[in-house]
């Protein structure tokens, strides 16, 4: 075992990995954060429309519009990410003039993630009590006021929880984008580990990805539970305990399952 760590090949791979690490982490976080932000810029309004536009919603929209919206989102969600990414290569070229590199990953990630965001937002907003919306309507609130002052604030804890899930999903997608010339931890694992069988680099990159996911999940859960005013102080401590238990359960999931 010690021999393995002392072997020059392993040491060489490891030092190469350490050299790549800061840039990789930066690339991964950069693409994840930007893609998440853009996915929300498109997905959040769509998610709101999915809830407010339905027949019983606060601002019903034409049936054909809702049907088309649902159809497009379902189509985009049913195309596997790898395929969608390849289909979106021309888009990157169109917007950024290139189809390789960190920035080129972002358009495919956004295309893949925004329908998912729309559905996540939709399910969070549906959790808001209908009675509260009715109360706001009875007070003479406009549909826009209801969205801004009732729907979004009341659904905040749930929106933050789903934003955490979205961020982690995009992080995972971003790792896959290494295959088509992306960059970051996933690209390193694929390019060095898979193509050149430098297993030390592959595993090290995966371990760092796992750690990043854990950190994002903990921050997300803490923020979500902390923003929830439906639970009292005592309940908040319990909520946090449950959330931590959930995180430690997740830790037992093998890296390959992501």
């Amino acid at each position: 075992m010690l021999d393995l760590f002392n072997s020059p090949e392993v040491q060489e791979q490891f030092s190469l990995f350490l050299e790549l690490l800061p840039g990789n982490i930066w690339d991964t976080l950069y693409s994840t954060v930007l893609a998440t932000v853009f996915a929300y810029i498109i997905g959040l309004p769509l998610g709101i429309l999915l809830v407010t536009g339905e027949r019983e919603g606060v601002r019903p929209l034409p049936r054909w519009f809702m049907a088309a919206l649902n159809f497009i989102i379902n189509i985009l969600r049913s195309v596997p990410f790898l395929i969608l990414m390849i289909l979106a290569i021309p888009l990157s070229r169109l917007i950024l003039g290139t189809s390789v590199g960190t920035n080129a990953m972002i358009p495919p990630l956004v295309i893949a993630a925004f329908p998912f965001v729309a559905r996540m937002v939709e399910s969070s907003l549906r959790e808001v009590d209908r009675g509260v919306l009715e109360a706001a309507q009875a007070m003479g609130a406009s549909p826009f006021q209801i969205v801004r002052k009732v729907l979004l604030p009341e659904a905040l804890p749930s929106l933050l929880t789903s934003a955490t899930t979205v961020t982690i999903t995009i992080l995972g997608y971003g790792a896959m984008a290494g295959i088509i010339g992306g960059s970051g931890l996933g690209a390193t694992a694929i390019n060095y580990g898979y193509y050149r069988t430098q297993l030390v680099i592959e595993y090290a990159a995966v371990i760092v990805l796992v750690i990043l996911v854990q950190i994002i999940q903990s921050i997300g859960t803490r923020t979500a539970v902390g923003s929830d005013r439906r639970i009292t102080k005592k309940g908040r401590r319990k909520g946090l305990r449950d959330a931590n238990r959930q995180v430690s359960r997740d830790k037992r999931v093998p890296p390959g399952a992501m």
Partner: peptide, 9 residues
């Protein structure tokens, strides 16, 4: 209302 319908947040 019966269920008060206050804004919980």
């Amino acid at each position: 209302f019966q269920q008060f319908n206050l804004l919980m947040q």
